[in-house]
Amino acid sequence: MELFAPRALAAITGEMFGALLWVAAMVALVDLALVLLALRRGAQWGAAARIAAGFGALVALGVLVALPGFTNAGFRDLAGALDWLTWAAVGLGAGVAAALGVLPLLALALGRRSGAAAPALQRGAASSLR
């Protein structure tokens, strides 16, 4: 059906989110740049991921609680697997997106991995050994 063609889906998404879609795209780009920067700096991914997961879980919980109300409905209106699975998937999606969004920021904020030296320092250390 035409409704599911990529063009149609893009048009519907555009109509649904309007300018927000561009904001989301910008945030995603900035996030991607931060990921690259964090990778170059040898950031602390493990600790950052744990905090980001916690943050994502909080966001997911908030979204799950607020979702029926956001759709002008209540929890009593959710009936059957279709509704509960959709509800859970939206919450999960929001949580994962939130976690991924803050992950590079946290990684940068938490600084370098202990023992990982900046690229310039590493070069300097190598030459002094010679």
Partner: peptide, 21 residues
């Protein structure tokens, strides 16, 4: 033929954007 929340969400949030597209 089953009452659900998901078709309501479509009515509330999705059919308007589809209509405008």
């Amino acid at each position: 033929l089953t009452e659900h929340w998901v078709p309501w969400v479509m009515k509330d949030k999705l059919l308007g954007p589809i209509y405008r597209a």
